[in-house]
Each structure stands twice: as structure tokens, then as C-alpha cells.
């Protein structure tokens, strides 16, 4: 059987970016914090641009621990949803029309989330990446790390457990 030609690069990129954009921009809380995602192939980096409303301690000043928590949890949920949808996106099975009508795929639900605060979050942009360490039909485990100016000096790390949305067969 002849191998089918791969899709043109623009088509592939457009499909990936549209799926990612729908996941990220459809959630009001992610918009409120101002989180964006940078994509290189299937690797995602979450970006939290600095804003005055993210400050927790105005005297230092430092980013609020709750903002750090929300940022890491968002990175974990989007990273997990992205990894679980990847095969469908690549195969063109992902329903783009549903997306443009504002129907998001069901997102994983957080069961628990444990954060370590390693340094205070400085008043500047922050970045985070998630690693799915276990992804089953029902449960998943994800680790997340966030940093600011220096990649090898994270200011927070987290581990969480998630309940995967039921897949309709």
C-alpha cells in the first residue's frame, strides 16, 4: 500500500495551533491570569506575563502564592489535555467545527495538587512546563516546574493527580 504524503507544514501547524488556542482561550480564569502557551512541536511552555494584579505581598513585592498555584495547575491541566488529544489532533480527528462553536473538549479534573514554594516569585514574567508521568484511562499524574529568569532555579514545583474525562467510544 503506498504511504500517503504527509500534510503540508502550514496545515499541520494551523491544526495544532487552533486546537491549543481553543483549549487555552476558552477558559475565563486562564484569561484573567493572562496565561499564554508557547508551542514547539508537542512541547508546551506556559507563560505568565507580569501584571500588578498578580502581587501577593506589596512590600517585597512578590507574586501571590495563589497565583503561582493557579499558574502551575493550569500548566498541568492544559499539558495533560494536550497530551491526551495529541493523537486525535495529528490524525485530523479533532472536531474543529465544534471548537469554533465554543464547545471545548472536556478537561481533566484535579483530584489533588501539592505545591512546593522554593523562592519568592519576583515581579516579572514566569514560565512553566508540565510532564505527564502517568496517563491512564481514568487517572493521571503530572509534575510541573516554574521558573523566572533562570531555568535551573525554579521558584515553584508541583505534583498533581487528575481524573480523566470519560471517552465516548
Amino acid at each position: 500500500m503506498p504511504r500517503s504524503r504527509p500534510d503540508p507544514v502550514q496545515v499541520v501547524k494551523q491544526r495544532r495551533d487552533a486546537a491549543l488556542s481553543a483549549l487555552v482561550h476558552g477558559v475565563p480564569y486562564i484569561q484573567f491570569l493572562g496565561i499564554e502557551f508557547d508551542r514547539r512541536g508537542d512541547e508546551l511552555t506556559a507563560i505568565l506575563p507580569y501584571d500588578d494584579k498578580l502581587i501577593g505581598n506589596p512590600m517585597i513585592p512578590a507574586i501571590h502564592g495563589g497565583v503561582t498555584a493557579g499558574f502551575l495547575e493550569t500548566t498541568a491541566v492544559i499539558g495533560l489535555a494536550w497530551a491526551s488529544l495529541w493523537d486525535d489532533i495529528e490524525a485530523g480527528r479533532f472536531d474543529m467545527e465544534e471548537l469554533t462553536r465554543g464547545h471545548l473538549p472536556r478537561l481533566p479534573k484535579t483530584i489533588d495538587f501539592t505545591l512546593d514554594y522554593l523562592r519568592s516569585g519576583l515581579p516579572r514574567d514566569a514560565y512553566a512546563r508540565a510532564r505527564v508521568t502517568r496517563s491512564g484511562r481514568r487517572y493521571a499524574s503530572v509534575q510541573v516546574e516554574a521558573w523566572q529568569d533562570q531555568r535551573d532555579q525554579p521558584f515553584a514545583q508541583a505534583a498533581g493527580h487528575f481524573l480523566m474525562p470519560a471517552r465516548d467510544e
Binding site: 476558552g26 477558559v27 475565563p28 480564569y29 486562564i30 484569561q31 484573567f32 491570569l33 501577593g56 501571590h64 502564592g65 495563589g66 497565583v67 498555584a69 493557579g70 499558574f71 495547575e73 493550569t74 465554543g102 464547545h103 471545548l104 478537561l107 484535579t110 495538587f113 505545591l115
Partner: peptide, 27 residues
Amino acid sequence: SEQIVGDPETGVVHGGAVSALMDTCCG
């Protein structure tokens, strides 16, 4: 409030906002 919604279809609040509340209250 609308701005802290995590699931636009149900209107349920995002876990991150609950975390911010918990962190502040514990502190």
C-alpha cells in the same frame, strides 16, 4: 464572578482561584 470560571460550559470556578483563597487564608 465570571472571571474566575474554569469550565465555561458549567460555570464552575477554577481550582486556581480556590487555591489562592486557601493559600491566603492559611497564611
